[in-house]
């Protein structure tokens, strides 16, 4: 029996690379490496009662209005978006204890209002500036109190900082201006 001596013929594996290449190219094309990122917000729970703005002292409220023409009105005066962050920081911390700025960081409230016709891009830009103001204040506080970066702190310490300078951005219902239906 001459045939019995022959072992199994070896499977030709030279096309393995081609198959792998094909799969590789498929995944290369469909890959999106950049992770989903965005600005995280916590919406206030819904209540049917209208919040009463009269309960708050005017000096503690930093009202920001973005109108349908994407212009910025801060406390009744027009402002360049580039200045918003620094002005917000000054309002919250009130380093010179001015009469018209917030009594203390924990009492400061930012009231953000927009028209229905405001562009989303502008809204995000303004929101981003406000959040950046808080992030920078937290960073400063972390450096001053613990001489470490805010990101590196424990959760409990971070919470402490956030209680000292709480992020309060209240958003009023938008006014009915300028929406293109």
């Amino acid at each position: 029996m001459a045939r019995g001596k022959r072992g199994l013929p070896e499977v030709n594996a030279s096309s393995m690379a081609d198959i792998a290449f094909l799969l590789l190219i498929f995944f290369l094309v469909t890959t999106q490496i950049d992770a989903d990122k965005g600005i995280k917000v916590k919406l206030p729970p819904w209540s049917d009662e209208e919040p009463d703005p009269l309960k708050l002292k005017t000096r503690n409220v930093y009202s920001v209005l973005v109108n349908a023409d994407n212009e910025l009105l801060v406390r009744g005066e027009a402002m360049d978006p580039a200045e918003l962050k620094d002005n917000t920081k000054e309002f919250i911390m009130n380093p010179q204890k001015l009469e018209n700025l917030s009594e203390s960081p924990s009492q400061a409230i930012i009231s953000l209002k927009n028209d229905r016709g405001t562009e989303y891009e502008t809204y995000i830009m303004v929101y981003n500036e406000l959040k950046a103001a808080y992030n920078e204040l937290w960073e400063d506080e972390a450096q001053a109190a613990y001489s470490r970066e805010y990101e590196d702190l424990d959760i409990s310490l971070r919470k402490k900082i956030r209680e000292k300078i709480p992020l309060v951005i209240s958003e009023a219902e938008p006014t009915e201006f300028g929406e293109v239906k």
Binding site: I39, W46, Y123, V180
Partner: peptide, 25 residues
Amino acid sequence: VTMGIVSDVKTKLRKLGQLSVNYSS
């Protein structure tokens, strides 16, 4: 997009108790 419809969605989310939102950017 104008904020009108975004606000409507936000209001609805608040009413539904879905309060964590991420504005993708």
